[in-house]
Amino acid sequence: MSPVTTTAPLATYLVRHADDNLIIGQRLAEYISEAPELEEDLAIGNLSLDHIGVAMHLYQYAASLGGAGITADTLAFLRTEREFSNVLLVEQPHVGFGDVIARQFFFAAYQTLLWEALVSSCDETLSGIAAKALKEATYHLRHASGWVVRLGDGTDESHTRMQAAVDGFWRFTGELFESDALVDEMVLAGIGVDPARLQTTWETRVSTVLSEATLTHPSDPYQATGGRTGMHTEHLGYLLAEMQWMQRTFPNMEW
């Protein structure tokens, strides 16, 4: 069987961000046709498309650095849970619209800062991908923030539901800002960004929106970790089982 994954440090770095985007894109895709109104079905579809598009570009770039036989699709469809390196936040399932928005809000607030920093990457391809993704993430953040405020400051019921949603995802936000040896290497090479550097601004932006939404800032001291090393929650396996079903059932075919 042909190799499915890459090992070069830059490729690994690209794949981790691609995984973040693919997995949240897949989660959003699950929600299409279930939104509270038609306009939101359209918006959710847009978000999903943007994320999967970014993932595809990053995978393609990573694949071009790897060995023969590696493609964006082998990276997406033929790796296992332990090989996926996305943060835990993006693989978390949602129950309703409040969850979809809370997850998106935390993640978009992070991604706007990430892409903004990666625009100055000395790697031109990555910088190009970041520039396009930044525009999209900026819209994602505006969309999600708008809903956090409307739902937080809407009715008593929506306030309660939105509070529960942000509380529920909070423990997965700390991981967004973790560094490791690979990050250090990428920073040193002028290619990557240290996410720890983004946390203060993220915290300020998130707090501003939460208080405008009359929501209480979550205070759960427990922060989950492990996604970057493939130590996922139990949810990812099911997501992959569904997403990879065709490629696993009908291997080595063109579609």
Binding site: A29, I32, G45, I52, D73, A76, F77, W255
Partner: peptide, 18 residues
């Protein structure tokens, strides 16, 4: 959508449903 066999097909299908 969630089971489309390639990334490109997945994106095209999402865009169509949209």
């Amino acid at each position: 959508i969630t089971r489309a066999p390639t990334l490109q097909r997945k994106m095209t299908l999402i865009a169509k449903v949209q």
